[in-house]
């Protein structure tokens, strides 16, 4: 039953993909109207004007270009012409660094806040105000104080991924079942051991959920941040290719951003499953 359901769902997915590609292909076919012009002038014009090709690349153009990129993912022809692998690598490295720093701050801090009702109440207004700030709003302040665009991007990732983790850790730690705490208390388990043997495993699924939300947000934000700071990264690549008017490359970048985002989410989902316990 389940396998046949999966099979049917897969079939529907393939049909939908084929339909999408088909419509895309048809919609971007040559329009056929070609203005008469001298051959000298035609050389200056693009294929759109000379052969009536659609201004929007079709799936075949994108596919060909993607194949080209995949064959040489790590070439480096200077600042404005690097392989997609290199650009993605820069982005992932920034996200990884900012995210890891956020984990190191958010989880211990969340633990502390969650275990102390006083801190929880005292810090709540700050968190409530800081949380809804768009991470990009920090960018000028970061650039001004840090004076390094690459580190500023990492800072922006840090600041945007800290909130979901912090809030989920606080919530997870604060809502550990009273009876489990009581078990530890009746067994005279010390505070530190209780934190690691009862509270951490009990709150782990909630904490991991926060981490999963954070990685998603971090990946969303890096593209925008890199468009601002420039230099390297997939966000910069998108903006650079827009300036080059290479819509094909922009589409490829969009596709890859989606795939990497999905992979990051899947990795965190796997970790979440590892710490989730059935009740």
């Amino acid at each position: 039953m389940t396998s046949s359901l999966r099979l049917r769902a897969g079939l529907v997915s393939i049909v939908l993909l084929a339909a999408f590609l088909g419509i895309w292909h048809l919609a971007t076919r040559s329009s056929g109207t070609v203005a008469a012009m001298s051959p000298e002038y035609a050389k200056l014009m693009g294929l759109t004007a000379t052969q009536g090709k659609s201004a929007m690349p079709g799936p075949l153009d994108v596919g060909a270009k993607l194949w080209e990129h995949l064959r040489r993912p790590f070439y480096d022809n200077g600042p404005n012409d690097k392989g997609l692998g290199i650009q993605l690598g820069f982005s992932i490295a920034r996200v990884g660094t900012g995210y890891l720093l956020a984990v190191l701050v958010a989880i211990p801090l969340g633990f502390l806040i969650g275990m102390s009702p006083l801190l929880s109440k005292a810090l709540d207004p700050f968190i409530q105000v800081l949380k809804p700030i768009s991470p990009l709003a920090w960018m000028p302040l970061a650039l001004y104080t840090i004076k390094d665009s690459s580190i500023s991007a990492i800072f922006v990732i840090f600041i945007c991924s800290i909130w979901p983790m912090l809030l989920n850790t606080v919530f997870g730690v604060a809502s550990v079942r009273k009876e489990w705490i009581n078990v530890a208390r009746t067994l005279e388990v010390g505070t530190l051991r209780r934190a690691f043997t009862v509270i951490l495993p009990a709150a782990a699924p909630t904490i991991l959920t926060g981490m999963r939300i954070s990685i998603g947000i971090a990946w969303l934000v890096i593209v925008a941040a890199e468009m601002l700071v420039g230099g390297t990264g997939i966000g910069y690549f998108v903006w650079n290719e827009w300036n080059n008017l290479s819509i094909t490359n922009v589409i490829i970048a969009i596709l890859l951003i989606g795939i990497v985002g999905m992979l990051l989410d899947q990795i965190l989902a796997r970790f979440t499953r590892m710490v989730t316990f059935p009740e």
Partner: peptide, 26 residues
């Protein structure tokens, strides 16, 4: 609390991420 006084809880209060042996061993 004290280890001299053991409590059996109404809701059994087992740690669900530990096995039977793990719960007793804890």
């Amino acid at each position: 609390t004290s280890l001299d006084r053991a409590v059996i809880f109404q809701s059994h209060a087992l740690l669900p991420w530990r096995t039977v042996l793990g719960n007793v061993a804890y």
